[in-house]
Nucleic acid binder design. Structure first.
Length: 471
DNA sequence: CCTGGAGTTGTCCTA
DNA sequence: TTAGGACAACTCCAG
């Protein structure tokens, strides 16, 4: 048979550079074929709308880079691989590891099954340190970030250095689906507009990184708190899909030690460290998305109010900074980190709604939707996590708006109906005198809502609710 | 087992 | 106007 080749399975490593599995195969075999499988078997959280869209364009890009040689399937990987093995001469199969609980489970079984037929190898292509390697001296997982990162990670061997390679891909004749055949864009609604804010593909990840390292990193530690500044990396969607590796980000940031104050580099690296922490938590606490990590919160009296939830989702709470954040998400499939905290705190501690409502909404809307980071971050905001914001730490949307959007540019960008309101009332439009409102032709309750809840009262209510958890 | 220090990102009140 | 402490204790972690 002339049809002999090795197989790389693309999953959350949609890149050709710094890809350990591809690199391994290329050193061993001349002919490599790449496969992507859209797999929802035993998956307890199917891809959200934004993720499907991102994946669609990512696959188009990748297939193009591979001269249309990407094999695309939908279904159960086990039967797909067994079929491929039966019909071709496959010498070896390899992939980079995933860490979501159902994927760990699936891959373990799959490796066992496939190993009966071909050689199977797996690699670390998406984490700086493996979750089972970062443990306390007593072999139990860390629950607190600082010791996890400082002691657990930084005293270990430094992360793998990025590798670069050029691959030549085997021009096979195997039939498979097209990207469109996966029907990832079936809805043809919201996603198609939102995606215009992004350029999707490996080279754009690199472009985004270079832009950030040049323009954002220099004032990262301070500027990253301001949603209207360009100091955050905005690289999370690429990182989630592996269009860039954390290793590449880590070492490229480190390279700038001569030009950039150490604190900025250290804080950026520690943000990558947070991502490691979240993956570590997910690995050791696989229920992270469905269960409070602090189970005393199981008896917390969450409210249930569809109107509140809808107003939050649509950015119609009457608090300008909250609404700006929620509309940024709706419009661009992304939300600045500061706003994720403010809007998250508001949902959980002012509207008193369960954090899982927020987790689900973000999962559906965010291009960077990531099982580990999303779940762990919501648990952090809600105070239910292992290393969480204390419950009495409740963000005040008025104060936060004034502090982190002092010119109101971010608010006006996403809540344009407030663009003519005097700055004095931008953060509290309900306090604006009626003669000014009619002068600027703004009808509160019609053009822009009154606040859904009172900040002081709802805060007090939350503190009271939390107090029953004591002891 | 004991001990002491520490824990991402805040707010509010008081002096 | 501003700086400092209270908020609430508890668990985690390392020596």
């Amino acid at each position: 048979m002339t049809n002999e080749f090795s197989l790389h399975w693309f999953r959350q490593d949609l890149r050709l550079s710094d890809n350990p599995s591809l690199n391994y195969l290329s050193q061993k075999h001349k002919r490599i074929v790449c496969v992507f499988i859209y797999d929802e078997v035993n998956c307890n959280r199917k891809l959200g709308s934004a993720s499907k869209t991102w994946l669609h364009y990512s696959l188009l890009y990748l297939n193009n880079k591979l001269d249309n040689n990407l094999l695309i399937f939908k279904g159960n990987p086990e039967s797909i691989f067994l079929d491929l093995i039966k019909q071709n001469k496959i010498t070896e199969i390899s992939w980079n590891r995933c860490y979501e609980p159902w994927r760990v489970e699936r891959d373990k079984l799959l490796k066992k099954t496939l190993s009966k037929h071909v050689e199977v190898k797996t690699f670390n292509g998406s984490l700086l340190w493996e979750p089972w390697e970062v443990l306390k001296a007593d072999s139990t997982p860390y629950k607190i970030f600082t010791p996890f990162y400082q002691r657990g990670c930084l005293t270990k061997q430094p992360p793998r250095k990025p590798i670069s390679n050029n691959f030549s891909f085997f021009n096979h004749k195997i039939k498979s689906l097209s990207v469109n055949g996966l029907k990832l864009l079936d809805n043809m609604g919201w996603e198609n507009k939102v995606v215009n804010h992004w350029e999707i593909g490996e080279s754009f990840a690199e472009k985004q990184m270079n832009n950030f390292l040049k323009e954002g990193l220099g004032d990262y530690s301070h500027g990253r708190n301001f949603p209207n500044k360009l100091n955050v990396s905005r690289i999370s969607p690429y990182l989630h899909w592996g269009q860039i590796s954390p290793n590449t980000l880590w070492y490229n940031a480190e390279k700038l030690q001569q030009d950039v104050e150490t604190i900025n580099i250290d804080i950026f690296k520690s943000e990558l460290g947070w991502r490691e922490f979240f993956y570590n938590l997910m690995f050791h606490f696989p229920n992270i998305q469905s269960k409070n990590l602090q189970n005393k919160f199981d008896k917390f009296p969450w409210d249930s109010n569809d109107e509140f939830l809808k107003s939050w989702q649509k950015g119609l709470t009457g608090y300008p900074i909250i609404d700006a954040g929620m509309r940024e998400l709706w419009k661009t499939g992304y939300m600045h980190n500061r706003l994720r905290m403010i809007t998250g705190s508001f949902l959980v501690k002012n509207l008193l709604l369960h954090w899982q409502h927020g987790e689900k909404w973000f999962w559906d809307c965010l291009f960077d939707a990531d099982y580990a980071s999303n779940s762990a971050s919501w648990q952090w905001v809600a105070g239910t996590g292992t290393d969480a914001a204390p419950y009495f730490r409740i963000f005040n949307p008025i104060t936060q708006g004034k502090k982190f959007d002092p010119e109101g540019e971010y608010i006006k960008k996403y809540v344009p109906e407030l663009k003519n309101i005097p700055h004095k009332y931008l953060y509290t439009p309900w306090e604006c005198p009626s003669e000014i409102l009619s002068e600027i032709n703004l009808k509160l309750g019609v053009d822009y809502p009154f606040p859904v809840v009172d900040i002081k009262l709802s805060r007090a209510k939350a503190l009271k609710a939390f107090s029953i958890l004591k002891k």
